[in-house]
């Protein structure tokens, strides 16, 4: 059995991608700053909203800020790691995917390594800052199990978003025209997940719980993270919620394989 050095290779890709980006230094700093600024303004908007209305369907600003921090941190991580999938349709169109097929490594690993975006640190920083603030503003103490769950939820969320990027890229094996609809799920998903899902209509909440398990980093682990009333959510579901994202990514990677097979049989 050959030693699996896939993580090592991925890190090599990361290093190279970063070095490539540093060659365009001005552009790097401008994009990072722009990213940070845009995300900051967004949270100020939420702040202002709460200043006006006090709370949102029984959720306090600090509670919403926690969700906001979780989703944005997870999304920034996912975007940093899975950005290659985001720009993948262009790769299929340009025929550059053939090049990856000619190399003796799994295609998903290579696509992920195509582009690792450092400028996403803007969003990541902002997510972490809001998260940090929420954690100090919330009344409950941050015990070790709670911190563990929080880390898990963010990790699971990152997996979920990577899964969404993979799905979006997979679609481009069939068509490059209908991708906007996926944007409503990926980018719309982050927007949605910044607020507790319980404020939305039931069908909407169900979609983001059972189809795209955004709820797994939102209202499902909330009772444990916020010391709130469980509201009918079993404790094991709250603890197990990080697994949903991992599962989602695994399913997405299966579909990716089917997409690659389709690509190699149609040659386009």
């Amino acid at each position: 059995m050959r030693r699996d050095d896939a993580p090592g290779l991925y890190l090599r890709y990361v290093g190279i991608s970063l070095r490539g980006q540093m060659q365009y230094r001005a552009s790097f700093w401008m994009l990072t700053f722009g990213n940070l600024f845009a995300a900051g303004v967004e949270f100020l908007g939420i702040w202002a909203l709460f200043g006006r209305f006090g709370s949102l369907s029984g959720w306090s600003l600090a509670e919403v800020a926690l969700f906001y921090g979780i989703v944005n941190t997870a999304f920034a991580l996912a975007e940093g790691i899975g950005r290659g999938f985001d720009t993948f349709p262009g790769m299929v169109k340009g025929g550059d995917f053939d090049r990856l097929l000619l190399r003796p490594r799994p295609t998903a690993l290579q696509v992920a390594g195509q582009e690792v975006q450092l400028m996403r640190v803007g969003r990541l920083l902002q997510g972490l800052v809001v998260l940090g603030w929420a954690m100090t503003a919330l009344p409950g103490a941050w015990t070790a199990p709670k911190l563990l769950l929080l880390t898990g939820v963010i990790g699971g969320g990152a997996y979920l978003f990577i899964g969404l990027f993979v799905l979006q890229a997979t679609l481009s094996f069939w068509t490059v025209e209908t991708l906007e609809i996926m944007n409503t799920v990926t980018y719309g998903g982050t927007e949605t997940g910044q607020f507790p899902l319980t404020i939305y209509r039931p069908w909407f909440r169900r979609f983001f719980t059972f189809v795209v398990p955004l709820g797994a980093m939102n209202y499902l682990p909330a009772p444990l993270l916020l010391d709130r009333d469980a509201g009918g959510i079993p404790t094991w579901v709250s603890w197990g919620s990080p697994a949903a994202g991992v599962l989602f990514l695994l399913v997405a990677l299966r579909l990716w394989k089917i997409g690659v097979r389709h690509y190699t049989s149609t040659g386009s």
């Binding site: 050959r2 290779l9 190279i16 490539g20 550059d96 090049r99 000619l102 190399r103 003796p104 490594r105």
Partner: peptide
């Protein structure tokens, strides 16, 4: 080994030698 005249297999922004080193890792 495959070479397409119309399309490079190398990394656009990297010095040539680093593309080579990366290929060493890819091909083990």
């Amino acid at each position: 080994g495959v070479v397409f005249g119309q399309r490079t297999q190398l990394w656009w922004d990297l010095p040539v030698v680093e593309s080579f080193d990366l290929l060493r890792d890819i091909y083990r």
